[in-house]
Design a protein around this nucleic acid. Structure first.
Length: 208
DNA sequence: CGCTCGATATTCT
DNA sequence: GAATATCGAGCGA
């Protein structure tokens, strides 16, 4: 317990890593030494050459090159001109690349800092989405490629034995291809899971 | 509550 | 020029 997740944790298929990350604790050490923490409550697995919804589907590029490298590194990309999203690279298998998108966390430590970053005091809106949590934890492109398997770095994940967790799965959200694959994992009933539209919520309900 | 739209980097057509 | 692993403001019901 309380151990930092190492390379062996991430050196597995992205679907396995994504499911196993639910309930683990994301730790962010700021440049001034302040520590921020949040329990992971929602993730999505992405593949490589066989996953049309993945950034890595069409091969390597300047943006996605980290996804083609060693497991246990942060793949952070800038999207829609405004937000960053955090992934952790996993084992690519035969598909050249893979990663797990961290979609939502439950704030645990450093909530005042997160409120300042997000310019809101609404607790369930601080980190309930991939763009939101990067803003709250001050995660941007400068951390792209960071080794996430050591507590001496600015970003890592710890097993604090958070429980009980009822992990459910659904199709991935925010994509338009390969929507049949149930590669989204979330802690059921947790208010910090990202909000999806009413319409999609009904679809997910029907499919579960 | 739900829908539309704007902000605008990166990649693809 | 269009689409995208996003979010929130503005508006109508």
């Amino acid at each position: 317990l309380n151990e930092v997740l190492g390379i062996s944790f991430y050196d597995r298929k992205s679907m396995i890593v994504a499911e196993d990350l639910i309930g683990k604790t994301l730790v962010r050490i700021l440049p001034d030494g302040q520590e921020l923490e949040g329990n992971i409550v929602e993730t999505e697995a992405y593949g490589g050459s066989r996953d049309p919804a993945s950034h890595a589907f069409r091969g390597i590029s300047k943006r996605n090159e980290v996804m083609f490298g060693r497991p246990g590194r942060a793949y952070i990309y800038f999207t829609y001109g405004f937000y960053y999203c955090l992934n952790i690279v996993s084992n690519p298998g035969k598909t050249k690349a893979s990663a797990v998108l961290i979609r939502a966390i439950e704030p645990v430590k450093g909530i005042e800092f997160m409120e300042k970053q997000r310019k809101t005091n609404f607790l369930t809106s601080l980190t309930s989405g991939p763009g939101k949590l990067c803003q709250a934890l001050s995660i941007d492109g400068k951390l792209n490629g960071t080794d996430v398997t050591t507590s001496s770095g600015p970003l890592y994940v710890v097993n604090k034995g958070v429980s009980p967790i009822f992990v459910r799965r659904s199709r991935r959200v925010g994509i338009t291809t390969a929507i049949d694959r149930k590669w989204r994992f979330f802690s059921d009933g947790n208010p910090f899971v990202s909000k999806v539209s009413f319409k999609l919520r009904r679809v997910l309900q029907r499919e579960s």
